[in-house]
Design a protein around this nucleic acid. Structure first.
Lengths: 165, 165
DNA sequence: CGATATAGGTCAATATATTGACATGATCCG
DNA sequence: CGGATCATGTCAATATATTGACCTATATCG
């Protein structure tokens, strides 16, 4: 009994270890291969996330940098860097928020819209390849698991990624 | 029919988009919360991966930096940086490879062993919390999906992460 | 109303991760 | 055997991601 329990705990630990190691590798590989898939446009995966977030119809007029930060679950400092580089490429415009003097708003420019349009076929081709062999149900399952994992981890995040002070 | 196909394709694209966005967020959150879980020891998640890899019995005598690089699926340059910082902390020792004058070997020091021992209970506690509510079968499923996703993406990697020249 | 607490972006420092380039060493092949 | 090709670690540059600190603005509460 004790032996059985010991074996199960050890197998469970190894399984958990593998899950997180694979998550680490998968994310790095996603960034590497995803960015390469967009080489012709010169946009990184992280910038793609920002452009994707800003291309949603519900934020057609833009959104606050703080809200974008919380949406992406990254620190304010990191987002600021990504936004700067996107601004350099003319894809976004940042303006003062008229309702809150501390805050900035960010929106896609016409150049950003055009870039997003060029990206989409490349992105979807990438998705097709990376998710090759996954049925619809399996994709739903993957998403469900990732959501739950993320929820659990977010509960370990006392104040979230943007509370860096 | 066309409408149906359009709707399915659009739903499929949105699903894929969500999967990769969640992967991005989950990885960042894992690094953030995982590193915080090890604050008392002062080891990052990436360093933990290296220490974990070097603590395996099959590499008790060390392994080549190149092999470690391929195992972790990171670039040689990145691994070099991580190894330097671990070396600074006294956790690893790097020696010339007697059989190949281009190559280096890396192994855990006694300090590294001790650090790994201190880390393990913290790591497993972290796993328990992050995987709370996941049954054994679900964990197996998560791992299986991540493995397949990683395999697919690795096929898009022409030569792997360490062929950076 | 005023003191206190919180929010938002910016600056600085450090760690991670990539690509490109390079010099040296090893392997391959005619 | 020697030239061509490939492998290995290192250096440089850039992008991403975090924590800590700071100043200004806003919200909260007695």
């Amino acid at each position: 009994m004790t032996d059985l329990r010991r074996n199960k705990s050890s197998a469970g630990d190894e399984l958990a270890n593998r899950i997180f190691f694979r998550l680490y590798q998968a994310a790095n590989t996603m960034h590497r291969t995803g960015t390469k898939a967009l080489d012709s446009v010169g946009i990184t995966t992280q910038q793609w996330s920002v452009l994707g977030a800003l291309s949603r119809p519900q934020v057609a007029d833009g959104m606050s940098v703080g809200d974008l930060c919380r949406f992406l679950m990254v620190s304010r400092q990191n987002l600021n860097g990504v936004l700067e580089r996107l601004g350099r490429q003319g894809c976004i415009a940042i303006t003062a928020d008229p309702g809150d003097r501390r805050s900035k708003r960010v929106r896609l420019t016409a150049k950003g819209d055009e870039t997003w349009t060029r990206l989409r076929p490349l992105i979807y081709a990438y998705y097709d390849k990376a998710l090759k062999g996954f049925s619809f149900d399996e994709r739903v399952s993957v998403l469900h698991h990732l959501n739950r994992l993320l929820d659990n981890m977010n509960m370990l995040d006392d104040a979230g990624p943007d509370d860096a002070s």
